[in-house]
Structure formats: structure tokens, C-alpha cells
């Protein structure tokens, strides 16, 4: 990790509140930086905050994320992977971390049920949401490759409801995507997110241009970091 990455770790560490009530954070980054942003995010959540969580991998088999974390010295003991893509990948890359599998990313509307207690689509035991303090998706826009916009929206709505209503009610969900590529999805998630953080192509937090009527008039500014609070729809 370079200096910019480490600065971003500190931004995520201070801006993403895991101890409070459940919340949805949306981060927009250039598509070429999505892997790096996820790494930085997981470093903040696992190493800095020492939190436990779930990472749902849709864009690549979980072994790649795990390998990246391992190589960068990030402790994975608190992380469980839910892998929704491995069954569609003839990948030989090995992995030895805690992981569970979904049959595929096509019936994404079943994922909330899978997380909350399992259903017919799960291969392994369902994840235990009572242990999780955060959930990260890698990455949410990939769902559009396999599902219609309507079903992705339905999934997100159900997912957020599930996460907010779990018995502890304190799970933080972080979604990372490129708003320039998937504008309509970004707008939809902005509408249900508690906070939106937009990054520049060189991994710095940039001023957010409010595009939604739900956005408060004055964005919060802290130490050169500007974030936008979005009212829950």
C-alpha cells in the first residue's frame, strides 16, 4: 500500500461508524481502482477497527481477495467469505480461509435469505449474521451482468431491510462501485444509503456534487474530506 492508500484507510476508519446503528455506505471509485479500494476498506475494518464481517464476492472468486489480504498482512480471522461466483469459475487458485458458497449470482434475490438462515440455494452452512459487524460486496455493480436492474433493486431493498432488522441492528454495509459506469444503480443506492463517499481516480476523497433532492444542503467537511449524508428513503 502506498501513502495515498494509507491516508484513505484513515479516512474510512474515521468516517465509517461500526459501533452505532446499522448503516449503508456507498463508495464511488474509478473501475480500475475497485480492487484497491476494497483492500483499503478491509484494512480499515479488520485491522484498524478490529471488526468481524462478511465479504460477498461476485466479481471474482474469494481466493483472490484472500490472497491480497494475506500478502498485505491484513488479518482475516474476523472475515467470512460468501462466494457467489466460484461455481461459475474454472479456477485452480487455492484458498484456505473461511468461506461459504452460493450456487451463483443469477438468483440474487435469494441471497438475503441465504444470509439470514439459509435456503435451497446454499451449498454450505449459512453465514451467522449475529456475529457480523459489517458486510462488504465485491462488487455490487457486477450483479447487473446477471440480473435485471429491477431485481438488483429488489435485492438491495430486501438486503438493507434484513441487515437493519437483524437482532443486533448494528451491521454496517459498504458497497463500492463506479458511478460513471453504472449511473442509474448509483442513483438508486444513493437514495437508500446513509452516506456516500466519492473518490478521485488517484484515490483521494473529492467533493461530492449532490445530485439528489434527499441530500442535506450543507455536506459535512472534515480535514479535507467531504462526504455527503443521504437521508434514508
Amino acid at each position: 500500500m502506498n501513502e495515498k492508500d494509507l491516508r484513505l484507510v484513515m479516512v474510512f476508519n474515521s468516517e465509517i461508524k461500526v459501533n452505532g446503528p446499522g448503516a449503508l455506505y456507498l463508495i464511488s471509485a474509478k473501475y480500475t481502482n475497485l480492487v484497491r479500494v476494497n483492500l483499503v476498506l478491509l484494512k480499515a475494518l479488520l485491522d484498524e477497527k478490529k471488526k468481524k464481517g462478511i465479504m460477498i464476492t461476485i466479481d471474482r472468486p474469494h481466493q483472490y481477495v484472500s490472497h491480497l489480504l494475506q500478502l498485505h498482512g491484513i488479518d482475516q480471522n474476523g472475515l467470512v467469505f460468501v462466494d457467489a461466483i466460484s461455481s461459475h469459475s474454472s479456477d485452480t487458485k487455492g484458498g484456505s480461509v473461511a468461506s461459504e458458497f452460493q450456487r451463483g449470482p443469477f438468483q440474487i434475490e435469494t441471497l438475503p435469505d441465504f444470509l439470514s438462515g439459509g435456503n435451497g440455494t446454499s451449498i454450505g452452512a449459512p453465514s451467522d449474521l449475529t456475529e457480523a459487524e459489517f458486510i462488504v460486496l465485491d462488487n455490487v455493480a457486477t450483479l447487473l451482468t446477471y440480473n435485471t436492474m429491477e431485481s438488483v433493486q429488489a435485492f438491495l431493498s430486501k438486503f438493507v431491510t434484513l441487515v437493519m432488522k437483524n437482532k443486533h441492528g448494528r451491521i454496517v454495509t459498504v458497497l463500492v462501485m463506479d458511478k460513471d459506469i453504472h449511473g442509474p444503480l448509483f442513483e438508486y443506492i444513493s437514495g437508500i444509503a446513509d452516506m456516500v463517499i466519492e473518490l478521485t481516480s488517484d484515490m483521494q476523497v473529492k467533493q461530492m456534487a449532490p445530485g439528489s433532492a434527499k441530500v442535506p444542503a450543507a455536506p459535512e467537511v472534515q480535514a479535507g474530506v467531504e462526504v455527503k449524508d443521504v437521508m434514508r428513503a
Binding site: V35, R60, P61, Y64, S89, S90, D91, T92
Partner: peptide
């Protein structure tokens, strides 16, 4: 085959 699969998954 394995090389190209892995390279694509590294984004």
C-alpha cells in the same frame, strides 16, 4: 489457461 483465468480475476 490457468494464467489467463487468474490474470482476469486480478482486475
Amino acid at each position: 489457461f490457468d494464467l489467463t483465468t487468474r490474470l482476469k480475476n486480478w482486475q
